[in-house]
Amino acid sequence: MSVTTTTPETTSTTQPKKRRLRTPYFQVVASLAWKDLRAEARGREMVNAMLLFSIMAVLIFSFALELDRQAQEATVGGVLWVTIAFAGTLGLGRSLAAEKDKGSLDALLLAPVERSALFYGKMIGNFLFTLAVGFLLVFLLTVLFNVNLFRPVLWLIIVLGCLGFATTGTLVASMSVHARAREMLLPILLLPVILPVIISATRASTALITELKTEDWLPWIQLLGVVDFVFLLAGFFLFDFIVEE
C-alpha cells in the first residue's frame, strides 16, 4: 500500500494538499492527525465538550446508582464504556462536521494522496481524543466509585476499545455528516455497529475489576483485538467508497 515518492520530505510544515507530488502514506496520516491535534490545541472546543460531558455523565451515574462496594465493582466497567461511547459520539460528530462545514474535507479529497491515508489520519485524531476521555474516566471513576482502576491491563483494554470505537466511528460519522439531521443520525447509525467493541470491552473490564480468573477476561481482550483488526481493515476498504465523487 506504500506510495512511492519522488521527493524526500524534509520540511516540518507538511501540508500534503499543497504538493503536486505524492506524499508518503504514513506522512499523510501523521500530518492529518497532527493538524487535528493542533486545531484542538488552539480551539479546544471538541475536547473540552467531551471531557465536560463525561464528567457530568459520571456524576449522574454516581448519583443515580447509589451502590454498595460489590455492586460498584460490578457496574464501574459498564459506566466507563457507556460514558466513553456517548462522549466519543459527541466528539465524532463534531470532528467530521467541522471538516465538512469549512470545506476542508473537499480540499483534502482533492489532494493527490491515498484516500485510506486520510481515513487513518482522521481516525488517529479521534482515537486520541476518545483516549483522553478514557483516561480521564480512570481517575474520575477511581475517585467517585472508590474502585482502583490503575491496572495496566485495564489500560490496554481502554486503548483497544477506543481504537475500535474511533475506527468505526470515523467511518460512520463520515457518512452521517452528509445526511439531514446528522446529529441525530450518528448515534443511531453508530451504536448498533459499535456494539461488538462495547460488549467485549465492558465484559473484559468488569471481569478484570471484579478480579476474576485470567481465562474470564483474556478471551474478551482477544475478541476485542480481532474486532479492532476487522474494523481497521473495513475502514481501509470502505472509506474509499464513502468519500468518492
Binding site: 467511518l171 460512520v172 446528522r182
Partner: peptide
C-alpha cells in the same frame, strides 16, 4: 436521511456491510 441518490445508494451499501 440522504438526498443525493448516488450517495444514498453508496452509503446504504457500505452500511449494509457494516
Amino acid at each position: 436521511g440522504i438526498e443525493d441518490p448516488n450517495r444514498r445508494r453508496r452509503f446504504a451499501a457500505v452500511y449494509s456491510i457494516l
